[in-house]
Computed example of a mutant assay.
Amino acid sequence: MIHTDGVAPAERFEYWRHLVSQTLLPLEVVSESPADFHGEMRSMDFGAVHISKVSCSDIWTHRTMKHIRQSEPELLQVAIPLRGHGAVVQGREHVAMGPSNIVVYNSWNPYSVLTTGDDESTIQGIFAMVPRTMLHLPETMSERCTPWVFSSREGVGALLLGFLGRLVTDADRFQHGEVTRLGVTVLDLLTMLLAGEKGTTPPPDTRQRVLLARIHAFIHRRLADPALSPETIAAAHNISVRALHRLFLTEERTVAAWIRALRLDHCRRDLANPQLEGRPAHAVAARWGLTDAAHFTRAFRTAYGITPQAYRRLHISGRARA
C-alpha cells in the first residue's frame, strides 16, 4: 500500500504525480487543489496483468504523444469506478464513467481522463493494465482507437468487477504459483467482455476458463448455503456434474474439496477476529455452511493442525499480549 499520509502536505501532490508515472504509465496529472491532495494506491502484478485500487482527490490525467514515445508497451487499460464519476476522451469519443460501468481504452493513442468525487468525497476505482497482444481478439478489434463502455452490473462485466475486487483485497494471500494463473483468468474475462460486443467467439479454452470463473464467483456467493454441492452448482450453470468435475481438474482439488477449503479459510479468519470472540466456534462454522460441529472440528484440525477453539485462543490472546 502506498499513500500520501506520510508526506508533507506541500509535497503530496508532486509525490503522487511521480508515483503514478512510475507505477502505471508516463502521464501528466493535474489537480485543481494540490495543497489539499491526498491519495493511496494498492497495486500488484498478476503475471502480465497489473491491477491497482486507487483512492484519491479529484484529478485530471493526460497522456500525450510525448508520453507515448517514452513507453513502448501497448496496453489496454480497464477503469472501473467504485465511487465518484468522470469521463474518458480518446480519439473523437467522449464516454462517461460511473460506478455502474467499465471503460476500456488504450495506451498507444492520446487520451484524457477526468475523475471527480461526489459531494467533495474522494474518488475510488480499480484499474487494470494488460498487453493487447495477450488478448485473443481479431486484429481489427485490438487496434481500436476509441474507448469501450460496458456495464459492471451484469454478465461478464459484473464477473470481471467481482474478480478484480477479490484479487486486490486478497492479494497478499495468494501463493506465488497462483498469481500467474489468476492473471490469465483476468485476460480471459476481458477477452470475453470485448468479444461479446461484436459477437466474436473467443477460443474454446478461454470460454472454459471464463465458465470456471463464473462458477468460482457462484460458489463465493453461495458459500453460506449448506445445500451448496456439485449438483446444485452444475444445475445453476446448465452443465452436467461430470463436466463440472472436468473443469476442476485444473484446480488440483475436487469441487467439494475446493468448497470445503474456502469455507474453512473463512472460518479461520472469523476465529481470529476479536470482534467475533463471543460467537461460539460452531456458530462461526454454521455461518459458512458447515452445520455439523463435530465434522467441522475434524476438518479444521486436518487443515490447520489445531482445533478451532485452540486456534482462536492462540490468535486472540496473542494479539491481546501484543
Rank of each mutant, 00 (worst) to 15 (best):
T180W: 02
R313G: 00
L249V: 11
G165R: 11
L314N: 06
A35M: 03
T64V: 07
P81W: 12
G86P: 07
I123L: 15
D205V: 09
H266V: 13
E197I: 04
L244Q: 08
V130S: 02
A236D: 06
V104I: 10
E40L: 10
M41H: 00
D188A: 10
A322K: 13
L314K: 05
T297E: 14
A281Q: 04
E277F: 14
I51K: 00
R301M: 13
V104N: 01
R222N: 14
F37N: 00
P204N: 03
F13V: 03
P308E: 13
D119M: 11
T133S: 15
P110Q: 06
H315V: 11
A96T: 15
M44G: 06
T206W: 03
D265A: 15
F163D: 07
V186Y: 01
G98E: 11
I215A: 10
D172F: 04
L193T: 06
H62R: 05
P204D: 10
L19Q: 09
P274Y: 09
A217D: 15
N238G: 06
S57W: 09
P99F: 11
F174D: 00
A310V: 08
N101L: 12
I102V: 09
S229A: 09
P202V: 05
V149I: 11
R287K: 13
G117I: 02
D36K: 13
S152V: 02
R313N: 01
D170Q: 10
I68F: 01
D36L: 12
L19H: 09
P34R: 05
R92S: 14
V89Q: 11
V88H: 02
D270T: 08
T185D: 04
I68K: 02
G199E: 07
A87S: 02
G6K: 02
E197L: 08
L82T: 06
M65V: 09
V284D: 02
T302A: 15
R42N: 07
R181L: 12
A128W: 06
F174S: 01
T61Y: 06
V130D: 00
T297G: 14
F300H: 05
G47D: 00
Y15V: 06
A35Y: 04
E178K: 04
R144E: 12
H136K: 09
R222V: 05
G86Y: 11
E32Y: 12
P204V: 10
A213K: 03
V255I: 12
R92Y: 09
L290V: 00
G86S: 14
K66C: 11
V130H: 01
R153H: 10
A235G: 01
L194V: 15
D58Q: 04
Q77N: 13
H94Q: 15
M41I: 01
T201E: 08
G278S: 05
G39C: 01
H94F: 14
D119Y: 14
W60Q: 07
H266M: 15
E251W: 08
R298F: 07
F127W: 12
R319N: 13
T297V: 15
S43P: 00
V29Y: 01
Q70M: 14
E14W: 10
H94A: 13
F218Y: 13
G196S: 04
T122K: 11
H237S: 08
